[in-house]
Amino acid sequence: MASLLGSNTTLTSNPSYSFSQAPHNNAAAGSKEHSFYPYTDNGGSTLGITGNDFAIIAGDTRSTSGYSINTRYSPKVFRIGGDDETGEGAHIMLSVVGFAADGTALKERLNAIVKMYKYQHGKKMSVKACAQRLATILYGKRFFPYYVTAILGGLDEDGKGALYSYDPVGSYEREQCRAAGAAASLIMPFLDNQVNFKNQYLPGTGEGHDLQARQAEPLPRHQVEQLVRDAFTSATERHIEVGDGLQILVLTKEGVEEAFFHLKRD
């Protein structure tokens, strides 16, 4: 009987058997609620700028899910390679923005690796090495990525500020400055203009193509700090996921200094 019904599909169509005995495929007939999506976006923005002898990484402290504010204080910038849980003695900074749980996991993993490096080799990991290692970690999860945009900051072999920016699967480059996260598209053009002097020309150097572009040069620390604050104040105005607080970490050869400023909480 079953084979008869199974082989002849016209038999089952009209009048039909309510319970089909023909071999069925298990595709859903209608829509069925399905699937777990292992990611979310916790909003916020980060930004990093380097100078001659310092690196700055900053991030707002708001954490969101949808239109809700999870908390007004959830730091996105971390010290890497510190001696204890406070991060004291760290020589590298990392910011992560995107999916906060992945961000935390990534931070903890990199921190453990940098610490182990010190214990095993008896010297601090260079920022260059750490930057490459972070790329390897991210690429290692190429097919189930850490859904974060990371920025790594430190001082290079010459004591100059070093900044590395990443995509979620480990592609990275060293840059002068970089904005990431929800308001990256708002902050980055501002940085292009104010840090790298894009679209700035020297007056009276000519007409049209003869006009000379203003050459970028490393900015002094106080000026960079002011740029960072302005960037976030403006981003807070224009982006709903940015605000509440601004955390700024400044790395010099003396170590890491942290500052906190209030941002609008609306």
Partner: peptide
């Protein structure tokens, strides 16, 4: 059993 012509075919994905 529920009639297919009334209730539509059984969604076998639940089996």
């Amino acid at each position: 059993r529920p009639r297919d012509d009334v209730y539509g075919p059984y969604d076998a994905s639940y089996l």
